[in-house]
């Protein structure tokens, strides 16, 4: 059914720490690696070794420069995948019922056998979380690795989304947001977890932790700093004469 559930028993999702992400794209690769051979159709590439490669990915890492009014610019790496929104517009627009939000854990999934590949769900998603697979003609999206997190054939430490498991910086965290004591709820509360495009009313489950403020030089000058002041403020000797001579022209 493409109506959204009134509420879900659990709210599984990710916390993505923009302060910690180093922009290595390991999550992109591990996501593609896991998901191309597990849930649903493979994630195809077109012209992968040619001049214009293009392919389906469920997770991509952008990089942004933030220039504050004062101080140096900051570079922020920004992984983006499905946010498993509480008020997911991609679910309600689906004409066939292929797109749905699970009552038990809030994961937004596509039943590919019912997908007609009309693309309207991707049109309705502000985050670019859905991509139509060019080879299969069905919509692909992050499944929150639904085939890992409940998979008792995997060792317990592997029962989390592939991107979380692989992140070498620990910038991605997986958990249940309906439990205020969960790791993700606490992290989000402590660090001021943000929604992306909150004005669109999608109520994303995934939260982004803003970068921590950077050190500044103001008011924190080291006691030895005065000794490091430049010694010669004015040119002396030959260069002093040259400087004055050139000024006259």
């Amino acid at each position: 059914m493409t109506s959204l559930p009134e509420q879900t028993d659990r709210k599984l999702g990710l916390v993505i720490d923009l302060d910690t992400c180093v922009g290595c794209h390991a999550c992109v690769i591990s996501c593609k690696g896991w998901n191309t051979e597990n849930y649903g159709a493979p994630l195809s590439d077109q012209d992968p070794y040619g001049a214009d490669p293009v392919g389906t990915f469920l997770n991509r890492v952008h990089s942004y420069e933030v220039q504050p009014d004062q101080g140096p610019a900051q570079l922020v790496h920004f992984p983006k995948s499905c946010l498993h929104c509480d008020d997911a517009p991609c679910v309600t627009v689906c004409p066939t019922g292929a797109s749905y939000k699970r009552v038990e854990d809030g994961i937004v999934l596509v039943n590919e056998d019912n997908c007609i590949g009309c693309g309207l769900c991707a049109w309705s998603c502000p985050y670019g979380a859905r991509e139509m697979d060019a080879a299969e003609g069905v919509m692909k999206k992050c499944t929150l690795c639904v085939d890992r997190i409940y998979n008792e054939n995997l060792p317990e430490e592997d029962r989390e989304p592939s991107c979380v498991r692989t992140c070498p910086a620990g910038a991605r965290h997986f958990g249940d947001f309906s439990d205020p004591e969960s790791n993700v709820s606490k992290l989000s509360a402590e660090r001021g977890g943000m929604d992306l495009m909150p004005e669109l009313g999608t109520k994303p489950v995934n939260k982004y932790l803003p970068p921590r403020p950077k050190d500044s030089w103001q008011g924190e000058v080291d006691v030895l700093a005065p000794w490091l002041e430049p010694v010669a403020q004015e040119p002396q000797g030959f260069f002093g004469w040259l400087d004055k001579a050139l000024e006259k022209f």
């Binding site: 991509r60 952008h62 990089s63 933030v66 570079l75 803003p210």
Partner: peptide
């Protein structure tokens, strides 16, 4: 979500080619 910290500019796209 970074707008309150300064002017945000797309510095580097996720990939060199195009996508869907």
């Amino acid at each position: 979500g970074l707008g309150s910290r300064g002017k945000v500019r797309a510095f580097e796209p996720p990939h060199t080619g195009t996508n869907y």
